[in-house]
Design a protein around this nucleic acid. Sequence first.
RNA 1: CGGGGUGUAGCGCAGCCUGGUAGCGCAACUGCUUUGGGAGCAGUAGGUCACAGGUUCGAAUCCUGUCACCCCGACCA
Length: 575
Amino acid sequence: MKTSNFHLVTQREVPSDAEIVSHQLMLRTGMIRKLTSGIYTWTPLGLRVLRKVEQVVREEMDAAGCLEMLMPSVQPAELWQETGRWEDFGPLLLKMADRAGREFAFGPTHEEVITEFARGEVRSYKQLPICFYQIQTKFRDEIRPRFGVMRAREFLMKDGYSFHIDDDCLDRFYQVMYRTYSRIFERLELRFKAVTADSGAIGGAVSHEFHVLADSGEDQIAHVPDSGYAANVEQAEAIAQGERAEPTEALRLVDTPNARTIADLVEQFDQPIEKTVKTLVVAASDDIDADFIALLVRGDHELNAIKAEKLPQVATPLRMAGEEEIRAAIGAGPGSLGPIKLPIPCIADRQVALMSDFSAGANTDGKHYFGINWERDLALPDSADLRNVVAGDPAADGSGNLALIRGIEVGHIFQLGRKYSEAMNAVVMDENGRGIHPAMGCYGIGVSRIVAAAIEQNHDDNGIIWPEPMAPFDVVLLPLNAKKSHRVRELADRLYAELGAAGLDVLMDDRPLRPGVMFADAELIGIPHHLVIGDRGLDNGVVEYRRRGAEAREIPIDEIGAWFDRVKTKDALSR
RNA sequence: CGGGGUGUAGCGCAGCCUGGUAGCGCAACUGCUUUGGGAGCAGUAGGUCACAGGUUCGAAUCCUGUCACCCCGACCA
């Protein structure tokens, strides 16, 4: 490709509404253009990258025996009503109606469609196991789209669905997908981590997320650096540490008129934050005879909403009580709540159950109790794992202490079980001629998100540094002053033809621009290999080779042939 | 959904307070010079000032409404 025939429109200035570096660089390089909130056009430059990622994904899925197909993005409401997700998916689902008033959704995922497909097509155990996948545009009406294509409403996703005669087969195939995903991210040369993830509503189901590691990531991962343990903080189990000490302080009621938060309490009364308890009031489930339930967490800990929702006593989705609701139920405002004489049921975090001599609100405005001790001052409530883990906590598997890092979720694999095959009555005949619901797995990869995640992980002040397998071009030729220099033009043309014939994606910058502009653009768009052809080098019989992000070196012109041979095996380029 | 902010040329912004018919930098176009790290000079083109209504002799500017986009929050006791 020659620049003169391409659409290369770079910008020096950073668009004002781009917050993170990948979004800024994708706009500055011209890879994407925003059409409206959370919806982007991929330009020819951006599409080249997207296609390369797609191709790696496709090759590895095919190698694992999966079959590519393409399902409709517009899906009838009835299908979603069959599984109850027409309501459950909520406002994330983009709904629309046709001229006759029939309702449709733009697909955010395809479990319903694939199950509908399978119940018509897959009838016998002899056809199993089977895995279908597609690479397709999805739409989720996100609450707050942000960070460009990182969290867009419309995005490109690879979604795969497998069907199995039994759970053993599903589990074995799941392991194949785990390895396939690892291989995909290895091939894309991304630093990543597979973590155990929230297993959702289906008990016992297994789920892993694949995260590209980057400080700007929206997800937190808890892992033990020297062991294999890694989990999303959403689901990492918090282990209580230590034993409950004997009481040393007397219980006392203290006037705390200006202490409405834990921070106030710590500051004004010199309380160590680890000796304070937060009382969070949430809506109770129908299972218990109360409208609200209190959850106790140590002052420096955070409630984990997903863990809380799993408690049978707590309503799903989790809903925090409003101030007026709290006053009506307890008689005091938020800021003065605590476990003593609490008129509603309560559950303590495991760590809270081990505390002694702690402080908490007195359920009277402007008063707190200090020196509270379980079993002496009040009964020990039920306890559960309610909080997020923090750095230094012991890992649930006992393999060491947790460190927290940030990641961008780019893949998620899941053992669905029979949720959809049962809800939609997909049936296959087993060896005994008996109809059974097949076990299913589903496997997603955020193709467009990978592009942004790769930039987050690989850039410098000059621009993007693409991992080679997803670079829009392998090599860029930069002929300097080609307009005037016949020999520069001639060598550039020759190299362009030969590199192209060797199977490389070559970009030749044939714009009559000053060298600085050409260098800056080549670096901004992140092409891995640069060949600079100028009179100065030709006088010495050399061209200049630069690996993006590394020092330049000279290659004698008469050795370019040998250099080619190494170029042809792309791996050698990076050395 | 709640709070805040911003809409002026492709991009980044000024002008608005104090009303008088729109400007700067980058990008683009033409010509000449320049050519190994985002050139110089001269010239050109591009704007219903988000939209609607109102006030006024006169509105980018003041008032009202609408829309769009961005940020923060929706774990706070």
